[in-house]
């Protein structure tokens, strides 16, 4: 039966399309606006003439910001914590999740709760800070990656997934004399690729976006992440002006159009922060969605 559109349907549809399109534009235009302002002639940007289209396209901003003191280092910190942190989270959390899926685990219920409670309860930020300090994790790169090894929410997702794998598969591996580690490496991990990919994506985005841990724990610029650098540049125009002078002194500037301005720095670092996410996002979207669906099933 074909549904016939009435006048009220047409009105509803039009309003609906317009509203959704407008909201979608608000999600897209800011990124576009940042981007065209980072690649346009910097004198035009300063005059406020770049609104809808880029003019005088150049990519000098992206080359120059890496010359700013400490910026390249912060890229290394951010990439490092994302790669190492994600790898460690995956190993630690999936193995623990696998162990918790075994009914013979010693006092399983107690230990599982022991881990899950940490999602709902924490001591507060000051005690957390004092603890990190006592552990010697202030101004220490390990502070970014060690606490992330066990991620409770990911653990639930992984355990639930492993429990859906038919036990007969593991039983046949046991016949061949495989122990827990062999089964985990040879059988469970290959079968769990989709969920592992989902967890990897969540963990990587979390690490890349993390900001407050740098704020609390790091005073040595050596450990500043890209997010933290961006925050500083957004707020401290003095620091910014200094860096710019350094950058200008280190390179020979030919044209005013490509000289980095404070606004240029803010916008260009923002793009550097967001480009990796925008690039991987379309490919990884299905994993994000998988993740929230699995979470929803649990919740």
């Amino acid at each position: 039966m074909k549904y016939k559109l009435t006048t009220s349907d047409y009105i509803f549809n039009s309003i609906n399309y317009i509203m959704l399109t407008l909201f979608t534009l608000t999600c897209v235009i800011p990124f576009y606006y940042l981007f065209i302002n980072t690649i346009s002639d910097n004198t035009l940007v300063t005059k406020g003439l770049i609104v809808w289209l880029p003019k005088g396209i150049h990519f000098e901003n992206y080359i120059q910001i890496l010359k700013i003191d400490g910026l390249f280092n912060s890229v290394v910190v951010s990439v490092g914590r994302t790669v190492l942190g994600t790898a460690l989270t995956l190993i630690g959390t999936t193995f623990l999740g696998y162990a918790f899926s075994k009914s013979e685990f010693w006092k399983r219920k107690f230990w599982y709760r022991f881990v899950l409670i940490t999602m709902y309860f924490n001591a507060g930020i000051i005690p957390w800070y004092i603890n990190m300090k006592n552990l010697g994790l202030l101004n220490n790169f390990l502070a970014y990656i060690i606490p992330a090894i066990v991620a409770p929410f990911s653990l639930i997702l992984f355990k639930t997934y492993v429990e859906s794998i038919p036990p007969s598969l593991e039983e046949s591996a046991e016949m061949d004399g495989a122990g827990y580690i062999t089964k985990y490496v040879r059988l469970i991990m290959p079968l769990s690729k989709p969920i592992v990919a989902t967890l990897a994506v969540f963990s990587a985005v979390g690490q890349w976006n993390s900001f407050t841990d740098t704020l609390f724990l790091m005073t040595d610029p050596k450990y500043y992440s890209l997010q933290y650098m961006l925050y500083q540049y957004l707020n401290e125009s003095n620091a910014l002006a200094d860096s710019l002078r350094q950058a200008a002194a280190s390179g020979s500037q030919v044209s005013l159009a490509t000289v980095l301005t404070p606004t240029g720095v803010k916008m260009t670092i923002s793009m550097v922060v967001v480009i990796p996410i925008l690039c991987v996002y379309p490919f990884l979207q299905k994993y994000f969605v998988n993740g929230i669906m699995l979470g929803a099933v649990k919740g």
Binding site: L20, T21, F23, T24, C27, V28, P30, F31, Y33, L34, N37, V205, W208, N209, S210, F211, Q227, Y228, L230, Y231, L234, K266, M267, I269, S270, V273, V274, I277, L278, Y281, P282, Q285, F288
Partner: peptide, 22 residues
């Protein structure tokens, strides 16, 4: 639409601040 409106969820608050600035 669904793809585009989900993007802001994956950027940090610092970046939201930067965008608010822009």
């Amino acid at each position: 639409i669904q793809t585009l409106v989900t993007i802001p969820n994956f950027i940090s608050w610092v970046l939201v601040y930067s965008i608010a600035f822009a």
